[in-house]
């Protein structure tokens, strides 16, 4: 066990088949203690299957999964007290209050002196202590779910799509809670299909597609390594701009707000493009030049058709 001290989670060649279909296809990764690891992928990519195998709910078809140095298929009842789980679509007993729900789950873990008040404070639910679960809003239910996942003071916290279905405000409130957990040094394992969530919270992001990991790195490195282009956005009402850009051999996107987006490989191209527009006598009202964000990297790595819209650039190595 000592040799594994560095890692909270070790996954080696994990594969899971359902009736001939492979939901998870030979994936491997490690998560260090205190690290925030995000599994990012579209629906049906195998994120939940992976996290449920890590949670000991499902058994792998092949491969090896070690949690805190223990094999998940052999040490289920030793692992469970040391992990906390927010399952996808968390739900609890309708008629039981916030405080009673936390008491209930802490009793399941035999916590001698659970810090129920501290947990409610952490997820900002102290003033809702006496409110029954069914009367909580979606965001508050999810926050209760996080508190429930923490009743046993776990070493690793698994969060399966913690903000899916929440409005932007509730999502931000949830991120605050998760950033707090990160500050406390908990190992967090997160699945999400929101890029900004992964970009904001994760130290490491693994992008999964059809059960395979297609890229894995820190969000900054992923962008750096997978996006060798610049995004230029021209805010314009002049239709000639579109024709000028197209004639130069680029593939511009035109949206309903009258914005034209062009992806360019070199900074020189930016100058060339702006000169051409000026020479053509066309006008634009605004200009934005930036590096692509994780969303574009994600689309590139998960959607084959994305590449077709990026003209003049080679596929990333």
């Amino acid at each position: 066990m000592t040799q594994n001290n560095k890692y909270s989670i070790e996954v080696h060649h994990l594969t899971k088949h359902y009736k001939g279909l492979s939901a998870v296809d030979n994936i491997s990764f490690t998560v260090e203690k205190g690290e925030v690891f995000a599994l990012l992928g579209p629906n049906g990519a195998g994120k939940t299957t992976t996290v449920e195998i890590l949670n000991t709910i499902r058994t792998p078809t092949s491969g090896k999964v070690m949690l805190l140095g223990m094999d998940v298929t052999e040490k289920k009842y030793d692992i469970i007290p040391r992990i906390g789980v927010l399952p996808q679509g968390f739900s609890s007993f309708d008629r039981i209050t916030v405080k009673e729900t936390l008491q209930y789950y802490s009793r399941l873990f035999c916590c001698r002196k659970p810090d129920i008040d501290g947990l409610m404070a952490l997820v900002n639910l102290k003033d809702k202590a006496a409110v029954q679960y069914k009367n909580l809003s979606g965001g508050l239910k999810q926050r209760l779910g996080i508190a429930v996942a923490l009743v046993n003071d776990p070493e690793i916290v698994f969060l399966d799509e913690p903000t899916t279905g929440l409005d932007p405000l509730a999502r931000r409130a949830m991120w605050e809670v998760l950033l707090d957990l990160k500050k406390k040094g908990k190992t967090l394992f997160l699945t999400t299909h929101y890029m900004e969530e992964a970009e904001l919270l994760a130290d490491t992001v693994a992008i999964v597609k059809k059960g395979k990991i297609t890229a894995m790195d820190s969000p900054g490195e992923l962008i750096e390594n997978n996006a060798h282009h610049l995004v230029v956005m021209l805010k314009s009402v002049d239709e000639t701009v579109f024709d000028i850009v197209e004639k130069m051999g680029f593939a511009p996107d035109y949206d309903s707000h009258g914005h034209i987006t062009v992806r360019l490989t070199h900074t020189d191209d930016v100058r060339r493009l702006l000169n051409a527009v000026r020479d053509g006598g066309a006008s634009f009202t605004g200009l934005d030049v930036r590096k692509p964000n994780l969303e574009e990297v994600f689309l590139k790595l998960t959607d084959d058709t994305f590449l077709k819209s990026v003209a003049g650039i080679e596929e990333a190595p």
């Binding site: 949670n55 000991t56 709910i57 009842y77 469970i80 007290p81 992990i83 789980v85 399952p87 996808q88 679509g89 968390f90 739900s91 609890s92 007993f93 789950y105 399941l108 873990f109 035999c110 779910g145 429930v148």
Partner: peptide
């Protein structure tokens, strides 16, 4: 159906 059982399966019950 609500998924409470799924949550319970990640506890020592």
């Amino acid at each position: 159906q609500k998924g409470v059982i799924r949550k319970l399966s990640t506890t020592p019950i």
